[in-house]
Amino acid sequence: MSNSSIQLSVLDQSPVRKGVSAQQAIQETVELAKIADNLGYTRFWVSEHHNTTALAGSTPEILITHLAGQTENIKLGSGGVMLPNHSALKVAENFRMLEVLFPGRIDLGLGRAPGTDRITASVLNPSNQWREQDFLEQLNDLRNYLHDSGEPGTIQEKIIAIPQAATVPSMWLLSSSGQSGLFAAHFGMGMSFAHFINPLGGPEAVQIYRDRFQPSIDKTAPEVNVSIGVFCSENEEIIFRQQAVMDYRYLQLEKGGKLYPIAYNDIKHVNYNAAEQERIDHNRQRMLIGTPDVLKEKIDTLLADYKVNELMAVTITEGFEERIRSYELLAAMYLK
């Protein structure tokens, strides 16, 4: 796969760095979107999370609106809207409005997870029963609303999602397992595999998606990208600190406690037991970290394993300048 065929994209979670307000975290997301646009990145997706002080992105549809107005060429989207938290009609109207405002530049990435704990999810949508069939019905309803294609006798036939739009946002399903990939294949949507959530079985899940893909009015052929934690620096000390912080952060997440902003100095003296070290070794598969020459080899191997040409980088750092520099170094590798 030649460098010229590689596409780079960003999945940004609006991380709140230690000592920084949520407002500043959102402004950093805005600044990063402008930089990614200028560097030639393909997409910039923002996430939906709730009940955490470590991430500031709770309403991707609102943030996308602002980002699209601040950029010129890059595609803006959700990575993703957590569909069980919302009504299909409201999601359709949100993204129809975005498509009217910024035609051809909007991605609608959808997830099945709540983006939070179960208690918060039950408050976001008290009727959520966590049933697979409910999610499938929501996907079907959403597609019908976006295409004005409700079947005769159904409620979707009687309701129009407004505003009416000449184009439809590109629809993607976020997946960290084979199950969501099957849903994406069935509905003819794109598939974004979250390697940063599950580093095992991704290439196999993507191949099953390709094999079972059913062409749709939205996509005539399979479309896949892979998202993974990425950090690039020319400074070995910064790389060491970043790795240590991410090791701790993933353990923090797995232990079920609330995520909170941390810095290297907070965790540099932490000693891990054997079980924790085993989890650290596993979690390091969820991210690619290194100097440009080392990292490029890792990325090339990952993309070859998945047989995809689009990498979606998730980068959270202690300093905002380090985050920017990492994306700049990636662009220098592939977007010359």
Rank of each mutant, 00 (worst) to 15 (best):
A36P: 04
H269M: 10
Q13F: 14
L311S: 04
F240M: 13
K90S: 09
T52F: 08
K18W: 03
S58I: 00
E234F: 06
K336S: 07
E297S: 11
P15N: 09
S14Y: 11
Y260R: 11
Y264F: 15
V10H: 02
A205P: 13
Q207A: 08
P163Q: 05
R131V: 02
V270Q: 15
L83A: 05
I217M: 07
G290N: 05
L139T: 05
P292M: 10
L259E: 11
K18R: 13
N144E: 12
S47K: 02
N94E: 10
G201I: 08
V100K: 09
M82K: 08
L288R: 03
A275L: 08
T71E: 03
N3I: 01
L83Q: 04
I238W: 02
A54E: 05
E236S: 14
T291V: 07
G79V: 04
G40W: 05
P215V: 15
Q133V: 14
Y327N: 03
N38M: 12
A313N: 04
K219M: 10
R112H: 11
V224P: 06
G57A: 15
H86A: 01
V245R: 15
A221I: 11
F193T: 08
Q23Y: 13
E151S: 10
E276Q: 13
Q252E: 12
N198G: 03
R241Q: 15
M333Y: 04
L55F: 14
F183N: 11
P292T: 11
H50W: 05
P60A: 00
L174V: 07
E31H: 05
G319F: 14
V230Y: 05
T317M: 03
I228F: 00
K298I: 06
P199E: 14
D247S: 09
L89W: 04
A221Y: 05
L55D: 03
Q7M: 07
V20L: 03
